[in-house]
């Protein structure tokens, strides 16, 4: 589990404080006719008072494995990069990215209703498929992130699974989309 308390830098905080209080540096009642942040937003140099970079950029997730798309899938020519298999006592999150040299639609193999196509997590004895739910129209869809296109740039997608046994250190991902790949499991 990620639980952080991000610090607004003293400089940024001070600038923000000054901007919000009319340069007094003290807490004072707001002008009811104006919104403090709106004043900031109209600033010609918004970065002066903006938040720290921690809210604008996050470290890039490193790949833990990659595997080519199957030639007989609509992902043909793509590369799947597995970014995360994070298990907790509550659930398991799998994040991957499919990249392709050309921008293409996700193709017929990607359909949130075709949940059986989504990667299956294989342990020694069991196989865990993506969680699903029944839609209000009676269909079944996966608890997963939608996808519309593949590009050369990675675009992480996630899907939620049941929790894995606590002693699981790796799983083999199996899908009609790509060649089987075994990846380590991290604990969240």
């Amino acid at each position: 589990m990620t639980r952080l308390r991000r610090r607004v830098t003293p400089v940024a905080g001070l600038l923000l404080a000054v901007a919000l209080t009319g340069c007094t540096g003290e807490a004072s009642p707001p002008d009811p006719t104006s919104s403090p942040s709106l004043t900031l937003a109209k600033s010609p140099t918004p970065t002066d008072a903006g938040p720290t970079a921690e809210f604008l950029e996050v470290p890039e997730t490193r790949a833990i494995a990659s595997t080519p798309a199957r030639d007989d899938s609509s992902y043909s020519g793509a590369t799947f990069t597995i970014l995360k298999v994070e298990a907790s006592a509550r659930s398991t999150l799998v994040v991957w990215s499919a990249t392709h040299p050309r921008t293409l639609s996700a193709g017929s193999d990607f359909d949130v209703a075709e949940w059986r196509n989504f990667p299956v997590l294989g342990t020694k004895r069991k196989a865990y498929s993506v969680l699903t739910y029944e839609t209000s129209t009676g269909g079944t869809e996966c608890v997963c992130v939608d996808m519309r296109a593949m590009r050369a740039e990675p675009n992480p997608q996630g899907a939620l699974y049941p929790p894995l046994p606590r002693d699981t250190t790796s799983v083999t991902l199996t899908s009609p989309w790509f060649e089987d790949v075994t990846v380590p499991v991290t604990r969240g």
């Binding site: 030639d71 007989d72 193709g107 294989g122 342990t123 498929s129 699903t132 049941p162 199996t174």
Partner: peptide, 27 residues
Amino acid sequence: LVEHVGKRKPSTPAPKSSPSASASPSP
């Protein structure tokens, strides 16, 4: 939400090529 957990089956090797790249593969 519905969980789908079953016994692990041996994975099947991928077909080498298919004339219909858009066909939905076996689940």
